[in-house]
């Protein structure tokens, strides 16, 4: 369980996050969705104890990441957007180094490294230098390192970004497994559809503020049908006819009827006498449109 409580952080004049508050529950995958620069990484870094906020606190299973850093850190994993280690070291050596801080003697650390590295699919790459790791390997390596202390909470920052299909599948399955084990998972993304089939809840962040927290099925309810229509000879009375079926948006000779509540056959029949139809089809608004409408709500 991660409790993010009123955290704010500015970089100079830029308010990266402003009074961010939400919870990441156990046994749930919480998606953390926002545009580039919305403040996802900043929130996650504060929660991982990597940077200090200007105000507020984050509780990991009840322990403050500021006051009880060591205990809190033990049960939270951070898989960064772009993991960076001391790249000229070998994976195994870096593992032993970190494990050393946690009190593991070299021989035990080695054993643990083999176990955890193979669990994240890095077996055979233990002797490689970290600079020779791919982005996906670095993310797996970060995951393996963080699992030394058997944590209960996971922060995945844009973890699917830049991964091949196998990597994407690995992290999705990994997250689902964690959920089954009753762990708390925060999964950030700037694409809502990326987390659609994964997350139970979505926390929307925009310009550093939390704009909405929704259950995933609620988000799906936002998905509405629309009608797309293109005619050769539009005029103002066409707009009038169409507006009976929903909200109409016009751009040139193309129309989109949002929240379409009619029948496609009926529409084409009723207008075909006066207008020459070039294209007519039904569609469903994408999650991304939902996303924009949600963050737009609060602008």
């Amino acid at each position: 369980m991660i409790r993010i409580e009123h955290i704010s952080k500015s970089y100079g004049n830029i308010k990266a996050i402003d009074d961010v508050t939400f919870d990441v529950h156990n046994g749930e995958i919480t998606a953390f969705v926002g545009l580039n620069g919305a403040g996802k990484t900043t929130t996650i870094k504060v929660s991982a104890g990597v940077i200090y906020p200007d105000r507020g606190d984050v509780l990991i299973d009840g322990y403050s990441i500021i006051k009880d850093k060591k205990i809190a850190s033990k049960s939270v994993v951070w898989v960064p957007e772009l993991p960076s280690f001391e790249m000229d070291m070998r994976a195994m050596d870096y593992f032993i180094y970190i494990a050393g801080y946690l009190g593991y003697p070299t021989s035990e650390a080695k054993e643990l490294a083999r176990e955890l590295l193979s669990r994240v699919g890095l077996e055979g790459a233990e002797r490689k230098r970290l600079k020779d790791y791919s982005q996906g390997m670095k993310k797996r390596f970060a995951l393996a390192l963080s699992m030394i202390s058997d944590p209960q909470n996971f922060l995945f920052d844009e973890v699917l970004n830049g991964l091949d299909p196998e990597g994407i599948a690995f992290f999705r399955n990994f997250a689902l497994e964690l959920k089954k084990e009753g762990k708390a998972v925060l999964f950030s993304s700037h694409i809502l559809s990326e987390v659609e089939n994964l997350a139970d809840r979505v926390v929307f962040i925009h310009k550093g503020r939390i704009v909405r927290v929704m259950r995933m099925d609620e988000v799906r309810n936002f998905v509405k049908p629309y009608l797309f229509l293109r005619v050769e000879n539009p005029d103002s009375s066409l707009l009038e006819i169409l507006s009976k079926y929903g909200r109409v948006e016009q751009s040139g000779n193309a129309f989109i009827i949002r929240d379409f509540n009619g029948d496609i056959g009926e529409v084409s029949y009723s207008i075909s006498t006066r207008y020459k139809i070039v294209e007519i089809r039904m569609g469903y608004s994408s999650l991304e449109e939902v996303f924009f409408s949600i963050i737009g709500d609060r602008k």
């Binding site: 960076s84 970190i98 963080s146």
Partner: peptide, 17 residues
């Protein structure tokens, strides 16, 4: 160097002060 490349960040996320 590790600070510049964010390599210390990862250490900061570990249960180490």
């Amino acid at each position: 160097k590790p600070k510049n490349y964010g390599a210390l960040d990862f250490l900061f996320s570990m249960p180490i002060t």
